[in-house]
Simulated assay, not measured.
Amino acid sequence: MKEYGLIGRPLGHSASARYFAEKFRSEGIADCSYSLFELPSIDDLSRLLADHPDLCGFNVTIPYKREVMRCLDDLSDEVRNIGAVNCVRCRGGRLTGFNTDVIGLRRSLARFLGVLPERALILGTGGASQAVQYVLSEMGIAFDLVSRDPAKGNYTYDNLPCEAVEEAKLIVNASPVGTYPNVDDAPRIPYAFVSPEHYLFDLVYNPPLTSFLDYGRQRGARICNGQEMFVEQAEASWRIWNE
């Protein structure tokens, strides 16, 4: 039995196990399983690998997308540029890190956006944000970062100018704020300055309509959740594990 899975903490919101179970069922893949491995610390990865010698690959989510890099033997060129991993291939006793978030994000944003905006705001500065920064740079979209930590962003949520929200026609929530079960939470930005000219993109897919997106919808903005990105990155991971 080939094993695959997801590491992170917490994992109650994740749809990965359900997605792969349905994929295996619908495609007649009988010799594979996908499990959720909630690790208290990234240091527990070595024990997980010892306990699951048939693990062929795993996905990585919050809070280990950057921490996992020190546990790996090889990194893809894209990971070296991004600085975050969400997919690991286990082969021949070696662990190789990839980033399939960028694949999902490229495709999802390409379908979502009309005319490319000149400027964007990225909410959050963690591992998912690293992928967003990489893709927006590829697309030629300038961006500012909003963080809880003044040392990591251009702005904090407490000093974000209304003009910055007004001018950035693309706003991406790359933080976990609003993820199930905390569905009433939303990033603290001045939504009154969101307009019908705005695009709001949320990497969160559970719930499908986050409070962040709902506030944008109420202001007439075009909105998109992370479901399509999730599917694209999952399929890209599967190709990497089995190529």
Rank of each mutant, 00 (worst) to 15 (best):
155 Y>V: 01
238 W>K: 03
218 Q>L: 14
175 S>K: 05
179 T>G: 01
87 C>F: 06
161 P>G: 08
235 E>D: 15
243 E>R: 13
15 A>C: 13
204 V>C: 07
174 A>W: 05
70 R>L: 03
89 R>M: 12
13 H>P: 11
235 E>A: 13
30 A>M: 10
212 F>Y: 03
215 Y>T: 00
130 Q>R: 13
148 R>Y: 08
186 A>V: 11
70 R>P: 03
127 G>Q: 02
163 E>R: 14
137 S>L: 01
37 F>A: 04
234 A>I: 09
167 E>R: 12
34 Y>W: 06
8 G>Y: 04
123 L>Q: 03
154 N>K: 08
64 Y>E: 09
14 S>I: 09
55 L>F: 12
73 D>W: 09
177 V>L: 09
72 L>C: 10
151 A>T: 15
221 A>K: 05
131 A>G: 02
237 S>N: 12
89 R>T: 09
90 C>Y: 02
79 V>D: 00
114 G>L: 07
20 F>S: 11
128 A>F: 09
9 R>H: 13
186 A>K: 10
172 V>N: 08
173 N>Y: 09
129 S>V: 01
54 D>E: 15
73 D>V: 08
121 L>G: 02
64 Y>K: 10
144 D>A: 11
198 H>Y: 07
208 P>R: 15
12 G>V: 11
71 C>A: 14
36 L>P: 02
160 L>F: 11
203 L>C: 06
73 D>A: 11
148 R>H: 14
138 E>D: 15
88 V>E: 07
219 R>M: 14
127 G>F: 00
206 N>S: 02
155 Y>T: 08
55 L>W: 05
165 V>R: 08
166 E>Y: 14
134 Y>P: 00
217 R>S: 12
163 E>T: 13
98 F>S: 01
121 L>N: 08
173 N>S: 13
170 L>H: 05
207 P>E: 10
157 Y>N: 11
72 L>I: 08
146 V>M: 04
49 L>F: 09
165 V>I: 11
218 Q>N: 14
76 S>E: 04
203 L>N: 03
54 D>A: 15
5 G>V: 10
194 V>S: 08
238 W>L: 13
192 A>C: 07
135 V>S: 03
188 R>N: 12
236 A>F: 03
147 S>N: 05
191 Y>H: 12
145 L>P: 05
182 N>M: 12
202 D>G: 04
49 L>I: 12
212 F>G: 02
156 T>Y: 09
40 P>N: 10
151 A>D: 15
193 F>E: 14
205 Y>I: 14
223 I>Q: 09
102 V>D: 03
218 Q>P: 03
